[in-house]
Design a protein around this nucleic acid. Structure first.
Length: 613
RNA sequence: GGGGUGGUAGUUAAGUUGGUUAUAACGCCGGCCUGUCACGCCGGAGGCCGCGGGUUCGAGUCCCGUCCAUCCCGCCA
């Protein structure tokens, strides 16, 4: 029976049980298991095989003659017929450890070459290899757990939407390029020479049009595409749980999501989320945490040091304030002890990454050089005033950044996080598995600015206003009076443990307001008509007030597993240069394919050499 | 576009101020072993030290370039 590749050797090779389900009560039963050879232990006259499938591991014991004829190697795919028996020597570490299967026959369904890395839990194999042999990587139990968790999580979320009368509607993947936002992935058209589709950055316009169409409540598990540089938490194609609702204001969207997330966490993980989630305005988030996705699980908030500056006699800070800049700091509890001068250098590097000129620091009560870079401006009354402003006392350390508001916020926000992690103030995400209890610190951030000044647009055009969220976001004030830089929008983000999980807004449902926003963004009437005419036209046919939201599923799934890289919850992810190492995409195409699409290479970079292994 | 880290056997790593034949563990191959489960014991094979150039009597080690992976900044409405 052994040796025959595939089936066809007579008996039925199909499994009766999985490798994870046999227990003591099955003892005596005749079973068939299918799976992969995870390990072998040959003791001479007795031969053990651990058989693995998605559900677990089961020990199989082979008599000598079967072993000799089967000649099993690791990762062979096999079918085993045998009888379940209680073990002489149970293994309490295995769920199936009380039993084993005594094989009466073995059929090799398919043999395996020696794998390029060992298929086991907690592999520390280079990502490059794991991605190239993704099918072997995914055989590993931790990858299977991640993908299963993802499946359960999305399934639970889908049920939660359906239970609330949301309709799942698919929108096109081949769509129209948009001038705003990220770079588009383009698809040339064969039928329309010289013209291109774009892959959607999100289904934004379609879902708004579904609202105009009266679908009232829409959701979709939507693939989105953005041709921008990647990060650990960013893939060129990613999945959003996208939704939109009619006749709503912010609070309706928030409470819908609070309920949906509650149901999802309960269903998928057995976790009960407390609702409602706290709300924080964007301005408050920036001012207190230096971030629009603040991690509020610990304190060490930013403090405005401006009230102290006039007392300090420190000309540099004085000038920055007079020039309209900010001087802010954080007080690091116990930092006087915990942070050495060498560490201060590292902190300085952190803030410099975000454009800060430098880091000023002070340890109250410590004199001389060890007391800080600004210790001589912190004597006597100035020191007392600074202690008061910073809420600092002996043993603490204060760190300051001065400059433009944006830089100060960002640099100190990053410093706060860095120090928080170093000093163990940030709770470790306990993500051993689904069922982990968090803490899940959800937070709504509201009232983002409407516009942002873009000094160097991607496309090389002149400096201009751009939407912070997207150009369909409603302004807080429908009249849009005042300076664009000061206008607030009705955009909001959902943040958890310092990660942005999703964003959304109340949309513009009035054609006149939408036109005004486009004008402010520098889109002339002709361009508006050409790029967004269909939307403006739709808005002119009785568009309902509406708003929505989208959650990055890759991120939330990774976070609920305690992972910081989304790569482990995407079955076939791309590298940080957007390549697929398994199928070797992107790749060049045949000349005739190009010709058929009426495209040609322009200024292709010189061919690379030295392309190594 | 910019910065950091890494690339040495199939895998994960070590490799001194540049100096004999480049180590180890796991895996793989062969042998022994009847209760293992990280099985054990004995033996063996396996290296363009990412790639290209340079310095040197001599380069895994120093220099320049380049490719790949990874993390961050910019970018990501």
């Amino acid at each position: 029976m052994a040796g025959g590749e595939g089936s066809g050797s007579g008996g039925d090779w199909r499994r009766t049980h999985t490798c994870g389900e046999l227990r003591e009560e099955h003892a005596g039963q005749q079973v068939v298991l299918n799976g992969w050879v995870a390990s072998r232990r040959n003791l001479g006259g007795i031969y053990f095989v651990d058989l693995r499938d998605r559900y677990g591991l089961t020990q199989v014991i082979l008599p000598e003659d079967l072993e000799a004829s089967a000649k099993l190697s690791r990762e062979d795919c096999v079918s085993i017929v045998g009888e379940v028996a209680r073990r002489e020597a149970p293994n309490e570490k295995m769920p199936t450890g009380l039993i084993e299967v005594r094989a009466s026959s073995v059929e090799k369904l398919s043999s395996s070459k020696t794998p390029p890395f060992e298929i086991e839990e907690g592999s520390d194999t280079a990502v490059e290899l794991r991605l190239r042999y993704r099918y072997l990587d995914i055989r590993r139990p931790d990858m299977q757990r991640g993908l299963m968790h993802r499946s359960r999580f999305i399934g639970a979320m889908r049920s939660a939407f359906l239970a609330r009368e949301f309709a799942e509607v698919e929108t096109p993947i081949l769509t129209k390029a948009t001038p705003e936002g990220a770079r588009d992935y383009l698809v040339p058209s064969r039928v329309h020479p010289g013209e291109f589709y774009a892959l959607p950055q999100s289904p934004q316009i379609f879902k708004q049009i579904l609202m105009v169409a009266g679908m009232d409540r829409y959701f979709q598990v939507a693939r989105c595409f953005r041709d921008e540089d990647l990060r650990a938490d960013r893939q060129p194609e990613f999945t959003q749980l996208d939704m939109e609702m009619s006749f709503v204001e912010e609070e309706d969207v928030f409470s819908a999501w609070e309920g949906i997330l509650q149901d999802t966490f309960r269903e998928a993980m057995g976790v009960e989320l407390p609702v409602p989630f706290p709300r924080l305005t964007w301005h408050e988030a920036m001012e207190r945490y230096g971030s629009d996705k603040p991690d509020t699980r610990f304190g060490m908030e930013l403090i405005d040091a401006a009230p102290w500056v006039p007392h300090s006699g420190f000309g540099v800070f004085q000038k920055i304030i007079e020039g309209g800049g900010r001087v802010m700091g954080i007080t690091i509890p116990g930092g006087g002890e915990a942070i050495s001068r060498g560490n201060v250098k590292k902190l300085e590097e952190v803030v410099k990454t975000y454009g800060a000129g430098g880091l000023a620091w002070w340890k109250p009560g410590v004199e001389g050089g060890a007391g800080g870079s600004i210790v001589k401006f912190c004597q006597d009354e100035s020191g007392a005033k600074l202690r008061e402003v910073m809420g600092a006392s002996e043993g603490d350390m204060c760190a300051f950044v001065a400059g433009d508001q944006d830089v100060v916020w960002k640099a100190l926000g990053a410093l706060r996080l860095h120090v928080g992690k170093e000093l163990g103030m940030v709770p470790e995400t306990d993500g051993a598995a689904a069922g982990s209890t968090g803490p899940w610190n959800f937070l709504w951030v509201t009232r983002f600015p409407m516009f942002e000044w873009d000094a160097e647009p991607n496309d090389g055009s002149d400096p201009r206003w751009v939407s912070l969220h997207h150009p369909f976001t409603a302004p807080a004030d429908w009249n849009m009076s005042g300076d664009p830089g000061d206008m607030e929008s009705r955009a909001y983000d959902l943040v958890m443990n310092g990660w942005e999980l999703g964003s959304g807004s109340i949309r513009i449902h009035r054609e006149d307001t939408q036109t005004r926003v486009f004008e402010l963004l520098g889109l002339g009437p002709e361009e508006q008509r050409q790029k967004f005419g269909f939307l403006l036209e739709a808005l002119s046919y009785g568009a309902p007030p509406h708003g929505g939201f989208a959650v990055g599923l890759d991120r939330i799934v990774a976070l609920t597993l305690g992972m910081e890289s989304i790569r482990d919850v995407v079955a076939f992810p791309k590298t940080s240069t957007a390549s697929d190492l398994m199928c070797d995409a992107p790749s060049s195409v045949a000349g005739h394919q190009m010709k058929e699409l009426f495209i040609a290479h322009a200024d292709l970079p010189a061919p690379r050499d030295g392309e190594g292994a």
